[in-house]
Nucleic acid binder design. Structure first.
Length: 270
DNA sequence: TATCAGGGCCTAG
DNA sequence: CTAGGCCCTGAT
């Protein structure tokens, strides 16, 4: 099916921006995204025109939300550009980035894993967990594994989890499995809470601190006022912003600005 | 072979 | 509030 998207939307930048760990380029120009039980193959055929593997119903019920296409990033870009010289540069470089609305459970586990790891290593651990414990999904192109639900992981021991390369984070993930399946932290219910309480609920899980909670809030619940501050963002604040955090300038869009800055720093590291 | 750092968090003091 | 430790892997 053909889709027209009349907004900032750059697949390569989105995939390289470190917010999703299983999405990627599968072959010349075709990107694959996975969320829940759905798999999408998408390719930009002409400027603003995309070929997608799903039907119209699935595009509207799943992927418009996933790609945050109800939000106009061009308008945000124009509104926020011009407030801060360094941030402006990162926005110019990252134009086309969007904040995906990904599955909260997958993002929770992935970001617990992410602490003190490099992105390729995170991707590897997430992939091993999917490979070992995910259910099989057949598409018209390939057979792959979905990311396992919390319930799928209930029987997994700490030792099993360590064999996925997660190291000392294994007990953290077990605690997440336990609290999410028991409903002590209900990922569906907390969706309705205001930002502060949402973060607090997530931080009841061991191994979930301020940064991980903000990642889940931003990358799966679409809380664009939330700003995960990691080593790259704090370096940007120290090295490029004279030690003064720029995020107060951007209010409800601060999380989106964070993604421009993160992408900019990451793509310039080597 | 040795050392370091990687989208942090927990515990002690 | 700050300092250290942490499991493991890839890079140098």
């Amino acid at each position: 099916m053909q889709i027209e998207i009349n907004d900032d939307f750059d697949l390569a930048k989105i995939v390289a921006s470190g917010q999703c760990f299983r999405a990627g380029l599968v072959n010349n120009g075709t990107y694959r995204f996975i969320t829940g039980n759905n798999v999408l193959y998408i390719q930009e055929t002409e400027r603003g025109l995309f070929s997608v593997s799903c039907d119209c119903d699935e595009w509207h019920s799943v992927w418009i939300k996933y790609f945050d296409l109800d939000r106009n990033y061009r308008t945000i870009f124009e509104e926020e550009h011009g407030k801060h010289p360094f941030v402006d540069r990162t926005m110019d470089a990252g134009r086309g980035l969007r904040i995906l609305r990904q599955d909260p459970w997958e993002i929770l586990v992935s970001t617990i894993i992410s602490q003190r790891k490099s992105i390729p290593v995170i991707q590897k651990s997430v992939e091993i967990i999917a490979e070992k414990y995910g259910t099989i999904k057949k598409t018209e192109y390939e057979e792959l594994k979905l990311f396992p639900s919390a319930k799928d992981l209930l029987h997994v021991s700490e030792d099993d989890m360590r064999k996925c390369g997660v190291g000392y984070r294994a007990p953290y993930i077990l605690d997440a499995i336990s609290k999410v399946t028991s409903g002590e932290v209900d990922l569906g219910v907390i969706k309705e809470l205001p930002d502060g309480e949402l973060l607090q609920s997530l931080e009841r899980i061991r191994g979930v601190g301020e940064k991980v909670a903000n990642c889940v809030a931003l990358f799966s619940y679409g809380r664009t006022a939330c700003v995960p501050v990691d080593v790259w963002i704090s370096r940007a604040i120290n090295d490029d912003c004279c030690g003064i955090s720029p995020f107060d300038l951007y209010g409800e869009n601060a999380g989106i600005i964070q993604q421009y800055i993160f992408y900019y720093k990451l793509s310039r590291q080597r």
